[in-house]
Structure formats: structure tokens, C-alpha cells
Design a protein around this nucleic acid. Structure first.
Length: 946
RNA sequence: GCCGGAGUGGCGUAAUGGUAGCCGCGCACGACUCAAAAUCGUGUCUCGUAAGGGGUGAGGGUUCAAGUCCCUCCUCCGGCACCA
């Protein structure tokens, strides 16, 4: 009789044995395929782990354990990301040195992780704050500097007044400091910046090399990089030497430019100083915008601005002089900080033009495509061009328009008609109104230009590209002549208000006209050019390049992504390895002098002066120039938290190498052709860590350190575990569940199985201790099965076991752990019912081993195996054994399942039909079968004649 | 506003276009027990006594057959957003 399942004893013992036997050590075995399985290494905070943290680690653990059993050489390492603000702020608050705090927190994290039974190779443990590690972080910086990719800048940057340091754009959350929530200020200061924008195109385009990344992560990165393609166009200043360059994505609308706007910070505003006549007004506006924070500018979208009196620019397309405004809806740090305003085709310019009473000149005639039936445009059919008119006929006294309801097709339209050759639009209009409506007294009150529409003309059965002149006509009175019978048969007439029209009109082009009738003169889509000189009539897409060339502009790209502000005015980070020499300027520290070790200090609180606390340590700051030998000062800024994590995964491949960041052969072995095989972590890193790491990796690729274009072949983000109350787990809410308590009470194996069984891995799901007990019960039943092992190998059990082998193996690869466990439960249910022999049990325990490694090790051992289950060979599935001798399938009559029958999986159709007919005889009685379908092992279906 | 993802029992969820609700939780009843817990068994979408009907966010469509494919719309989650 086996003992009761004592998880504490079993787990403690096996964790000890694993450590002793060193079974998880990663080895470069050339004859085996490698599997580099990586977790995003944790930031060891003072709070310790909660049950949400290990979820991703458990998943990689399950994955790596299976890979090992399947004969892979596995690298599954762990380490600590321990530089940066959180650790430093924690240290300041608790009045301990950051180094001491980090040591303590790491010890605590490691103890917690060890209790969960992970297969980490601790001999490869790394820590970003270890000088032997960060010498290479500094080395990468030197290489970046050498290539001109690290530079000093004095531009205004985000400054957090509470953390007292500059921050990168990536460190902001909604315009606030991501760490402490303080409103950030723009502050000019000396800083180090990395030229990530040089890599923007590759970072964007190489996303296509990552088919195994989740779509939403790639989308986030695309949005973050925010490339937009357009043109730069120069506008000379009237009677001046200067010119203003604008960036626009719509050079095709150049002829519609009616004014220009400069960002208030645009340098030209100062340059033009003397020529501006309304100086007082302008400086008042500049003052006002300067006081607004970035947040206020974003929140308050009401347009403000101020004209620069006496300053005009010349539109290079048509030589027209245009007024120049400054307005804060134009941002200094995007594009060129200046825009050509085309109010007819840009929402913001439109709003500004309305407010400041500026002209609106439409130069794009919309092309509208009918997408819904009836009359949806058929992309596969030839298009027939035609000229026509569309007329909105206004009632002589009511605020109503005439709608035509078509009789042969479900269309609601305004009055339309083709323009026959030799006729003008106006003549056609008169003719059509008389013929189709009978009204005789009317005036044309407005000419709304043209629209172009692609649709399928149902009555005529042709795919049309209609070019329509659009008019508004008002009837003088209701005088009406009779309409011909032929016309009468086509449609009926309805007087409708604009709101009723909204419901009534079915044609896309007519619905668009409704907004025009309501006074909206804004169109932002594509179309054909109008009022554009030689370009009139061509397609807007085509016109972009043509117009840009004509005015000697340049096709250009702009990015939302900014260069990476890389210096922090704080103590706890990697010192930036350069020296400031009075004669040589900025001199990099020679490689052989690395690492530049962070000195011990008494006071490491931030100074707030834009200098880091390092500046106060004279013995450290004062040095000699490596170049000329005169007295010089060290750089006192440190690197941001994200530095170490941008390359750490490479160090695991060769953590003890004293000569290189990573040795060539180790890099080649572990990174292989596609990099890290599997990378798992939080989705919150989509736009920071994962962009930075890809950037550094590409740089290291360029200088020959790594051989893969991308670092991570497959990326999966963990779904959060919420607290039982559905909120985020947080000390603040007092709803944190500590894994130590779960491990002590229910066992690490239960925690592991439950976290994998909760639901789909990438979904956010609330913790539920009741549900977890189901996982504990499952393990207890597996445990008790030891006592009930028989000698008979049942066919049904064997078949289910093979199914389970297949399902578990496949599901682990696809990260569908919940269904893998579900299948093991199904197998267990059957095994308990039918009975199971030793050998079947052993194979089942192997499948369980990645999920519940301690219990599996114990049972495997008790079954008499000397070698650990975790280095045993993964069971194989025999496809032939998956097939059952009979299958149950449903019998449908007219789509409804009326009975089920049992059949051999390969039963011939005649047999199936005979069996099915008798099963559903009741439903077939007196009916004739129109169609019979039989899909073996799936369905039998009768379709009755009616 | 643009882009991405998702809506299924009381709950977490499952379903290569082929018997919707597998597996688990909870609940009900039963067995064991003096009793309870634990364990085991049976049941558990919904209306209906039943036969049968309805049912996967809403409405349409394709199909012999739709949770799954297509169209329109609603709701929720995530990214970007005065980005020219």
C-alpha cells in the first residue's frame, strides 16, 4: 500500500536530488538539436513573487522538459534584471544600499522559484548589476559610439520631477512617468541618445521575418514605430531668402493648400522676427503655448493659433501667396514642424480653417465604391465608364428632398441620369427632371462638383465607373406634368428630410452626398484631382509622386519613433564609459579598461540638478584622458534600466566568457539560424524591451557579433492572472496570493497543473482557489492509481493512451496546456474505469512529468526506474492504434440530428445508409429523399424533397 | 477615429464546416459513515409531463450542414492617436 500523497516531502526530496545530480545542465551536444527556451528575466522587487509571476515560467518549464525528453539539448536559463529606478527607489525608501537590497531580493526570488521545481540551469545565472556582466553592456555602448549611433544631445527631453531624471518616450505612460505617475516636464539638458531611428525601417520591415510572433505584438510595434510615407516640399518665403519645408502624406492635395502652419517652437518664428508685424500678439501666443503641458495640448483639441502678419509663403505648385500661422496643433518634433494646410482634405486643417475663416478649396473629387448589395462593385468584372448627373431636388416650401425608390431593385437614390454625348450636364439635368419627375419650374441653386463611383448597375447588369456632376435644385412650385408609363414603372417618388434620407439612400455615393448637403465640405479619402492645373483628372495616388517631382520636392518618410534617450541622472545603473577631456572632448574609455565599475557611495539620492550623484565622488570622477593624458572627468550619467535586458539572452549562451560578449561557437550553437527558439513574457514589453532588444541585436549583427537577423524566433505573451476579485493583484488592494502559501498547502505540482489548466495561456483569467482544488484532486487520483495497477492491457485504454500522447505532445508545442491537461483527465477517467497496467501507467506518468515533475519523478522511481523520468525518452504515438473499431456518428434529417448510429470507421456507404434509414425511419416515413450524404466517421445526412 | 484580439451554461472553458457544451469548478441527489469531512456513483444549457421545440452578442447571407466561412451592427479588452 502506497503512502498518502505527501507533496511536501516528495517535492523537497526531488528538488534536492535534482540539484545533486545536476540533470538540468545545458550542454552543447552537437549531435542533438538545440532548444533555447527563454523567460523574460524578472526585476527582483522587494515584494517577492505573486502567483501571476510564475505562470510564464511554468509554461517554458513544461515546454523545455518535454523538449529534453524528446532528445533536444535544452537551454532554459534564469537571471536578474536588477539595475534601474525601482530598485534604487526601493533602496532609498528602506534606507539600504541598492546593492544590498538587490542581493536580498534576488535571494528571496530564487528561493521562491526553486520551490516551484523549475528545470533552470543555475550554473548560467546572470545578473545585470554584476560588473562582469555590465562590462559587456558598456562594450556595446562603445561600439555604438564608434559607429556614431550614440551621441550627445541638448534637446529638451522628458524630465520626471519626482524620480529626478530624464526619461525616454518609451518610459511614459499617457504622458506621465511610468514608474511614479508624475506629470513629466520638457527640460533641455545634456544627454546621451541612441540613434534607434537609423534602424526604424529594419525594425518595421523585419517584423515579416517573425511569423511565430503574435499579431498584436507586431501591430503594437508597427504603431510605435509609426512610419508614414509622403513628401517634403519647400515653400519659399515671399520677398525673402528663406524657405519653409513641410512634410505631408498628401502631396496630391498641394493645389488645395490655403495657408501654412508652423509649430510655435519652429526656429523660423525667431528668424522671421523683424518681418512679423503683430509681434505682441505672436509673443503672447508663444507664451501661452509654452505654459501648456504636453498633456494639455493633447487633451484640449480646440484649435488655437495666431497669424504671422506680413509673412507669406509661395505655393510652389501655383505661385500663390499664402498666409502663415503658428498653432500648437502642429508639433515641433514630428515631420519638419511645419505643414501645408489643406482644409478641404484634412480634418484638423478643416477645423482650424473654420475657426479662422480661411478658404477651403476642394481639389480631390471622391471615388466611392459600393461595397454592399444590391449593386456591390464586382472587382472581377470589367468597368464601364460613364458620365452622369446626380440631383438633389429640394421641395418648394418644405425642408425635404426628393428620393427615388426603385421598383426592380432595392435601391433608394437621388435623381440620376446619364449624360448623352453632345449634351451638357445642365441640359441633361433639365431633361431628366422633366422626364422622371414631371416637375417643370426649378432653379439650380448649387453646383457641388463631381463624385466618381464604382458600383454594379443591377438593372443594366454592368459594372460601372460613373463620373457624376452633382447639383442641388430647388423647385419653384409643385407644377407637374404627367410622366410616361415607362418612367412610372421605374421608381416611385418620396419627399424626405435629410434624416429620413440617411435611412433611405442605399448607394454609397448618394449617402456621401448627404453629408455634403448638410454642409460638410471635408473629404479625406482618395479620388481624382480637380483644380490642379496639369494634374487635373488624374488619380490622387498617382498624383503624389507626380506633383512632388514637379515642385522639386522629395519623397520622404517620417517616424513616430524617436531616438532613445539613454542617460539617467541616477546612481543605480551602468556608468556610461566615456571621459570628458578639456582638449580632446568626449573620449571613449578604451575597451581594455572595462568595466567602468560603479563606485561605492554613501549618498546615492538623486541631486535633481541634471547631474547624477556620481558627480560628487571626486576620486572617481577625476581621471586622466585616455587619449592625451591630461586631467579629465568621467561621464556621470548612467544607463537606463533597459540596457542590460537588451542583450542578456546572448550571455546565457556563454556566461563565463572573459574575452568575448559571447563566444562564436556558443552563439552559433544556441542561437542557431533563428535565434532563441521560444521567448515568453508579459505583453507590457511589446514596445520597449522588445524593440530595444531587436535594435541592439541588429546592431550586433551588423558588427558581426551575432549571426541571426532577429533575436527571438517565437514570442508568446502570458495572459495575466487576476486576483479572485477580478482586479489586478496588488499589495494596494490586499488581494495578492503568494505562491509560497499555495506550494506549502497544496504543493508545487498542484500550482503548476492549475496555472496551466486555468484557461488558454495567453488569456487573462482570475485566480480561483476552488478551481485549483480540482487540479489537486486530479493529481491525487493519479497518485492513487498506483494501488490499482492490473496486468491486463485493454485495447480501449491503449487507444486512449495513444491519443493522449499525441494530444499532449501537440498541445505543449502549441501552448495549449489547458487542453493537454483536459486530455490527461479524460485518460485518467477511462483508466480508473477500465483498469490499467504498469507499463501504460508509466507512459502516462511520462506525459505528466513536464506538468507535475515531482510527482512524476516519485512514481517513476517507485515503478523501478533507475534513471530520472525527466531524462527518459518521451513516449511515441502509433497512428495505427488511434483508430477505433466503431465510431458513433449523428444522423441528420434536413439538418437536424435525429439519431446516432455506431459504425465501423471505414463502413461502406451502402451499410451506412441502411443503418441510418432504420435509425431515422420515423422521420423519413412518407417522404422522398432528395439527397443523401455520408462522410465516414463524421456524419450521415438525409435531405428531403419538398 | 485607425489597427489588433475576443464575445458559448451559475463559473473557468472545449469543439479539422459534421451529434454545441468535452474537461474542471459549483450545485442537487444517492452510496459509505453514528455523524461530518474526504472519497465514490448519478444528474446538471433552456422551455415542455412527454413527443418535441429553442439555443453559441444582434441581424442578414453561403451550405445538405455554421460557434466555426461572408456581410452589416453592438459590446468588451489591448496598441496608436491634433503624428500632417
Amino acid at each position: 500500500m502506497s503512502k498518502q500523497y505527501d507533496h511536501q516531502e516528495i517535492e523537497r526530496r526531488w528538488q534536492h536530488l535534482w540539484r545533486e545530480a545536476n540533470i538540468y545542465q545545458a550542454k552543447e551536444e552537437k549531435d542533438k538539436p538545440k532548444a533555447y527556451v527563454l523567460d523574460m528575466f524578472p526585476y527582483p522587487s522587494g515584494e517577492g513573487l505573486h502567483v501571476g509571476h510564475p505562470k510564464g515560467y511554468i509554461a517554458t518549464d513544461v515546454f523545455s522538459r518535454m523538449k529534453r525528453m524528446q532528445g533536444h539539448s535544452v537551454l532554459h536559463p534564469m537571471g536578474w534584471d536588477a539595475f534601474g529606478l525601482p530598485a534604487e527607489n526601493y533602496a532609498i525608501k528602506n534606507k539600504v544600499h541598492p546593492r544590498v537590497a538587490v542581493e536580498k531580493n534576488v535571494a528571496r526570488f530564487k528561493e521562491q522559484l526553486e520551490g516551484i521545481g523549475f528545470d533552470y540551469d543555475w550554473s548560467r545565472e546572470i545578473n545585470t548589476t554584476d560588473p562582469e556582466f555590465y562590462r559587456w553592456t558598456q562594450w556595446i555602448f562603445l561600439k555604438l559610439f564608434e559607429r556614431g549611433l550614440a551621441y550627445e544631445s541638448h534637446e529638451p527631453i522628458n524630465w520626471c520631477p519626482s524620480c529626478q531624471t530624464g526619461l525616454s518616450n518609451e518610459d511614459l505612460d499617457d504622458g506621465k512617468c511610468e514608474r511614479c505617475g508624475s506629470e513629466v516636464e520638457q527640460r533641455p539638458m545634456r544627454q546621451w541618445v541612441l540613434k534607434i531611428t537609423d534602424y526604424a525601417d529594419r525594425l518595421l520591415e523585419d517584423l515579416s521575418l517573425l511569423p511565430k510572433w503574435q499579431e498584436h505584438i507586431k501591430e503594437s510595434q508597427k504603431n510605435w514605430i509609426g512610419r508614414s510615407e509622403g513628401a517634403e516640399i519647400d515653400f519659399p518665403i515671399l520677398d525673402g531668402e528663406e524657405k519653409v519645408t513641410v512634410f505631408t502624406t498628401r502631396p496630391d492635395t498641394l493645389f488645395g493648400t490655403t495657408y501654412m502652419v508652423l509649430a510655435p517652437e519652429h526656429p523660423l518664428v525667431q528668424v522671421l522676427g523683424r518681418r512679423i508685424k503683430n509681434t505682441a500678439e505672436v509673443s503672447a501666443y508663444l507664451d501661452k503655448t509654452r505654459k501648456k503641458t504636453e498633456m494639455e495640448r493633447q487633451e484640449n483639441k480646440e484649435k488655437t493659433g495666431c497669424v504671422l502678419e506680413g509673412v507669406f509663403v509661395v505655393n510652389p505648385a501655383n505661385e500663390q501667396a499664402l498666409p502663415v500661422y503658428i498653432a500648437d496643433y502642429v508639433l515641433a518634433h514630428y515631420g519638419t514642424g511645419a505643414i501645408m494646410a489643406v482644409p478641404a482634405h484634412d480634418e484638423r486643417d478643416y477645423a482650424f480653417a473654420q475657426k479662422f475663416n480661411l478658404p477651403i478649396i476642394p481639389v480631390i473629387e471622391p471615388i466611392l465604391t459600393q461595397t454592399v448589395e444590391p449593386g456591390a462593385y464586382r472587382a472581377d468584372m470589367p468597368l464601364q465608364d460613364g458620365n452622369s448627373i446626380i440631383v438633389a431636388i429640394k421641395h418648394w416650401s418644405d425642408e425635404k428632398y426628393l428620393g427615388l425608390k426603385w421598383k426592380k431593385v432595392a435601391w433608394g437614390t437621388l435623381l440620376t441620369g446619364s449624360i448623352d454625348s453632345g449634351m451638357t450636364a445642365e441640359e441633361t439635368l433639365s431633361k431628366e427632371i422633366r422626364e422622371e419627375t414631371g416637375f417643370t419650374h426649378f432653379n439650380i441653386v448649387e453646383d457641388l462638383g463631381s463624385v466618381h463611383s464604382k458600383f454594379f448597375h443591377v438593372p443594366k447588369q454592368v459594372n460601372k465607373f460613373a463620373h457624376s456632376r452633382v447639383f442641388v435644385v430647388q423647385l419653384k412650385d409643385g407644377t407637374q406634368e404627367p410622366v410616361s408609363a415607362e418612367e412610372e414603372a421605374k421608381h416611385e417618388l418620396h419627399w424626405l428630410t435629410l434624416d429620413e434620407m440617411q435611412e433611405f439612400l442605399t448607394a454609397a455615393s448618394h449617402r456621401y452626398l448627404l453629408s455634403v448637403l448638410k454642409g460638410e465640405r471635408l473629404y479625406v479619402g482618395a479620388g481624382l484631382l480637380a483644380r490642379s492645373g496639369a494634374f487635373t483628372g488624374i488619380d490622387s495616388e498617382e498624383a503624389k509622386r507626380a506633383i512632388t517631382e514637379k515642385v522639386a520636392g522629395r519623397m520622404a518618410k517620417t517616424y513616430r519613433l524617436k531616438d532613445w534617450v539613454f542617460s539617467r541622472q541616477r546612481y543605480w545603473g551602468e556608468p556610461i564609459p566615456v571621459v570628458h577631456c578639456p582638449t580632446c572632448g568626449v573620449v571613449p574609455v578604451p575597451e581594455e579598461q572595462l568595466p567602468v565599475v560603479l563606485p561605492e557611495v554613501e549618498h546615492y539620492e538623486p541631486t535633481g540638478t541634471g547631474e547624477s550623484p556620481l558627480a560628487a565622488i571626486e576620486s572617481w570622477v577625476n581621471t586622466v584622458c585616455p587619449h592625451c593624458g591630461v586631467a579629465a572627468k568621467r561621464e556621470t550619467n548612467t544607463m537606463p534600466q533597459w540596457a542590460g535586458s537588451s542583450w542578456y539572452y546572448l550571455r546565457y549562451a556563454d556566461p563565463k566568457n572573459m574575452n568575448d560578449l559571447v563566444g562564436r561557437s556558443s552563439e552559433a550553437y544556441w542561437m542557431g539560424k533563428q535565434g532563441v527558439d521560444l521567448y515568453v513574457g508579459g505583453a507590457e514589453h511589446a514596445t520597449r524591451h522588445l524593440i530595444y532588444a531587436r535594435f541592439w541585436h541588429k546592431f550586433l549583427f551588423d558588427i558581426g557579433v551575432v549571426t541571426t537577423p532577429e533575436p527571438f524566433e517565437r514570442l508568446i505573451s502570458v495572459g495575466l492572472i487576476m486576483a479572485e476579485d477580478g482586479r489586478k493583484m496588488s499589495k494596494r488592494f490586499g488581494n495578492v496570493i503568494n505562491p509560497d502559501d499555495i506550494v506549502a498547502t497544496y504543493g508545487a505540482d498542484t500550482l503548476r497543473v492549475y496555472e496551466m489548466f486555468m484557461g488558454p495561456f495567453t488569456d487573462a483569467i482570475a485566480w480561483n482557489t476552488d478551481n485549483m482544488i480540482g487540479s489537486r484532486r486530479f493529481l491525487e487520483r493519479v497518485w492513487r492509481l498506483q494501488e490499482r495497477l492490473g496486468t491486463v492491457n485493454h485495447e480501449s485504454v491503449e487507444r486512449e493512451l495513444h491519443r493522449t500522447i499525441k494530444k499532449v505532445g501537440g498541445d505543449i508545442l502549441e501552448f495549449k496546456f489547458n487542453t493537454a491537461i483536459s486530455q490527461m483527465m479524460i485518460f485518467l477517467n477511462l483508466a480508473e474505469k477500465e483498469g490499467i497496467d504498469n507499463e501504460q501507467y508509466a507512459r502516462f506518468v511520462q506525459l505528466l512529468a513536464p506538468f507535475a515533475p515531482h510527482m512524476a519523478a516519485e512514481i517513476w522511481h517507485k515503478l523501478g526506474n533507475a534513471k530520472s523520468v525527466h531524462v527518459s525518452e518521451w513516449p511515441t504515438c502509433d497512428e495505427k492504434k488511434l483508430v477505433a473499431s466503431v465510431v458513433t456518428l449523428g444522423v441528420q434529417v434536413d439538418g437536424k440530428v435525429r439519431a446516432t448510429i455506431e459504425l465501423a470507421p471505414d463502413a461502406p456507404e451502402a451499410v451506412a445508409r441502411e443503418r441510418a434509414v432504420s435509425a431515422v425511419a420515423k422521420w423519413l416515413e412518407g417522404k422522398e429523399v432528395a439527397r443523401f450524404l455520408y462522410v465516414p466517421s463524421r456524419i450521415v445526412s438525409f435531405v428531403l424533397k419538398r
